[in-house]
Design a protein around this nucleic acid. Structure first.
Lengths: 215, 215
DNA sequence: ATTCCTCCTACATCATCATGTAGTTGCTAG
DNA sequence: CTAGCAACTACATGATGATGTAGGAGGAAT
């Protein structure tokens, strides 16, 4: 591969950051474009240095790596961020991935494997420490199934508004006061909602609305 | 590594299966324990041959690999299944992972990388073709946030049963008939549910139950 | 034995919901 | 102009829900 992979480091542990710098500079396939103890200026750094891959710690002063990923991913979505951290809890993994990280490796990863992870990320992969990958699969399996695709229901905007209020547990009287219409008008719309949804009670309508994402 | 990785193959493409057989038998770290054109007897095969890793095609006659993964994962959860397929659509990936596959590689994967994927799976990893891994991350990011962790509500089993029935839109009369108790008893339990959930109406209770995953 | 918990039952009463009937207004399309 | 649609309003009536009061049974723990 002729093109060097440009790498920027963020880690507040000085000795670890130094050894990562040396590792990256040792191999001709990689180019170190920056090395910082915190991500406070990550947008400016990224704009200026244009890294291909960012290796990101999580626990840093002033801003976490999880927050920084979100920033840089929004502004520079082509830049790949690989988290490198001691944290292997589900919520850290979840937040990192949802904020845009494409990789997540634990700090005990051997140096050559770190380089391979950086390479994978630059090539469009998703490098993970195996135990983290398995956690992601488990979280993935636990997500609720997508809502059933039911027949598209054509509710008017008023009907949608009132159905939404129902799902908040509001009574007809409360709804009528909130949107400034008569209580019999609320009933009128609710009757139309029931007809469109083929239901016969308030709770049935609310249940369907929530289960099927109608509002 | 002293212990050979035991591998079983399922693929209805004869020539591909033959070349995979040869590949696995060429390397001393692997042992071919079985090779089948379809997974119709996967439970018996797995019980008898005790593979560490199963390499699973998806499109096969009589039973898809996705169905087969579910069967074998439930009965033999320690056996790792890696899908090997041409399909890279989200729904196939989603179903495979949710049914228990720990890996998903596309058929264009070079032979040595196939072996590495098998090795990764046997070591507890989650081998993915990079483009598939990225798809999984994208699907992962699109999942709704976990329900808010609300105060643990201590509903009795009867209360839970009745709240569940409410979320199905059942009236008190229907509930009483279904679980064979008096309608006043239904009301009694519902009153307790309201107190525990700090709500004042049926719809409020249903709404909370569905939004917070109480049932 | 008593107490507590869970489940069960009945009654009374008021509040709210569900349904049907009837009518009005404003806007748009044919 | 008419017809259709959406939103609005009112009334009547029966059904259902919410709440309070009162009591009983069975099982477990003290």
């Amino acid at each position: 591969m002729a093109k060097k992979i440009k790498v920027t480091l963020y880690d507040d542990n000085n000795s670890l950051r130094k050894s990562l710098e040396q590792l990256i500079q040792t191999y001709p396939d990689f180019e170190l474009t920056g090395s910082y103890p915190n991500p406070l200026h990550i947008l400016d750094n990224t704009k200026e240095k244009k890294p291909d891959v960012i290796l990101m710690d999580i626990d840093m002063p002033g801003m976490t790596g999880i927050e920084a990923v979100e920033l840089v991913h929004k502004k520079f979505p082509e830049v790949k961020v690989v988290m490198q951290t001691v944290f292997d809890e589900d919520d850290k993994i979840f937040q990192s991935i949802c904020n845009g990280a494409v990789g997540y490796i634990l700090k005990k990863t051997p140096p050559l494997q770190i380089l391979d992870s950086i390479k994978q990320a630059s090539e469009g992969g998703a490098p993970m420490t195996p135990s983290v990958a398995i956690k992601i699969l488990k979280m993935f399996r636990q997500q609720p199934p997508p809502p059933e695709e039911k027949d598209k229901v054509d509710l008017s905007s008023r009907e949608t508004e009132i159905l939404s209020a129902l799902t908040k547990g509001m009574s007809y009287k409360m709804i009528s006061e909130e949107i400034k219409i008569g209580i019999d008008t609320v009933r009128f719309h609710i009757k139309n909602i029931y007809e469109k949804l083929h239901v016969h009670s308030n709770t049935e309508a609310v249940s369907r609305a929530l289960k099927e994402g109608l509002i």
